[in-house]
Simulated assay, not measured.
Amino acid sequence: MFIENVPESYTTSDDVNKNLFIYDLKMTEASIKTKVNLNMHMFSFLQVGKKQVHFPDSSVIVDNKQSLLVKKGNCLWSELLDKENTYFCKLLFFSEQQLIEFLNKHVQKNITVKKEPSYFIIENDAYISTYLNSLTSITNSSNKSIENLLVNKFEELLLYLQSKYQEQFESYLFSLVNKEKKSFKHHIEQNVYSSLSLEEIAFLCNMSLSTFKRHFAKEYGLSPGKWFREQRLTKAKVLLEEGKFKPSDIYLDLGYSNLQNFSSAFKTRFGFSPSEV
């Protein structure tokens, strides 16, 4: 199982200890559900294409109308090309040390920190466009003046987003340095109806597949395959009995890749096909 360590896979040995790092990610082939060990928090400013990211507790997809602030940790990301078969994303990585310095300087400590997802969506605007143009001239040089300039640019960006999103953004920033971990059951129940494989869910929980299966059986008393199948098919039966949906409307949202597999599993479980409900 290949796991990409980011930003290490984008850096040289001279960049490893940097608190701030810019990288232009350009691709001509799509990548689907790459297993990523993200070791720094990251701004993702998508310029061309689409990006989808799965986290232990949520997932998100954006195009070039939005940018993402992403919490470090295990995730799966897909980079999808546009019509001209290109993908371009400007990435800005930052350390917790750099973030804490900003919080101590610019954010009141009595703010109420809410439970936040692993990402924060930023609506692109004229400022973001101008800001990205200014970053283009900044390289990842070891030149001290360039490093100092990047620190100022990072602070400028956070101040702008703070003024735009106010307490919502401040709460998210504090969540990035909050060490409270969400429970195993929380991650499982957030992915009940996802299309992720057991191996992918195990990776998001930072476990090997064998460890994940043992832990799951201990928590739920069933194998993960049986438990997920039971939850999804029971949900499908309830939805179909309400009469608002057809089988073709729901199979994707319940984690099945095609209608035939869904129908077969449904009939095996209940003794009749979903179209007969």
Rank of each mutant, 00 (worst) to 15 (best):
G225Q: 12
E241Y: 07
V60L: 08
V70Y: 02
I3F: 04
V113I: 15
E116S: 14
T112A: 12
I32K: 15
K246P: 06
S210H: 09
I201E: 02
N148E: 00
F43D: 00
L204K: 11
S248D: 05
A217M: 07
D82K: 05
K18Y: 07
S59P: 06
V70P: 00
L99W: 09
Q47G: 07
V53F: 04
S210L: 12
I111D: 05
Y220W: 05
L135T: 06
N74P: 07
A217C: 04
N64G: 06
Q52P: 02
K237L: 12
N258P: 11
Y127C: 14
K244H: 06
N206E: 15
L149S: 01
K185D: 01
V16C: 02
S67M: 14
Q231M: 14
V107I: 14
S44C: 13
K35R: 08
L209A: 11
K226C: 08
Q231N: 14
V48L: 14
Q168R: 10
D125N: 14
N152G: 01
D63A: 11
S95T: 13
L159H: 10
S223A: 11
Y251A: 03
L158V: 09
T268W: 05
N258T: 10
L76M: 06
I32D: 07
E167F: 15
K115H: 09
V36G: 01
C89R: 00
A30K: 13
S223H: 10
E189Q: 13
M40S: 12
N74R: 14
I201C: 12
E29G: 03
K235Y: 13
S263L: 03
M42A: 09
E29K: 09
L20M: 02
N148L: 00
K153C: 01
I3P: 08
S223G: 08
K213V: 03
L176A: 13
R214M: 12
H106L: 03
L239N: 04
K213G: 03
K109E: 03
K144W: 01
L76V: 07
T139K: 12
H186P: 02
K18A: 04
D15I: 07
L161G: 08
Y23V: 04
K181R: 10
E155R: 11
V192E: 07
R232Y: 10
L25W: 13
V60M: 08
L173D: 02
K71M: 15
L198Q: 15
S194T: 12
F245P: 02
L259F: 00
F88W: 09
N152H: 02
I128K: 03
L103H: 01
N110W: 10
K226Y: 14
E156K: 14
Y127H: 15
F169N: 04
F102K: 00
S13V: 11
T12N: 07
I3C: 11
Y160Q: 14
F102N: 01
K181E: 15
S67G: 15
T34R: 09
E84A: 11
L69N: 05
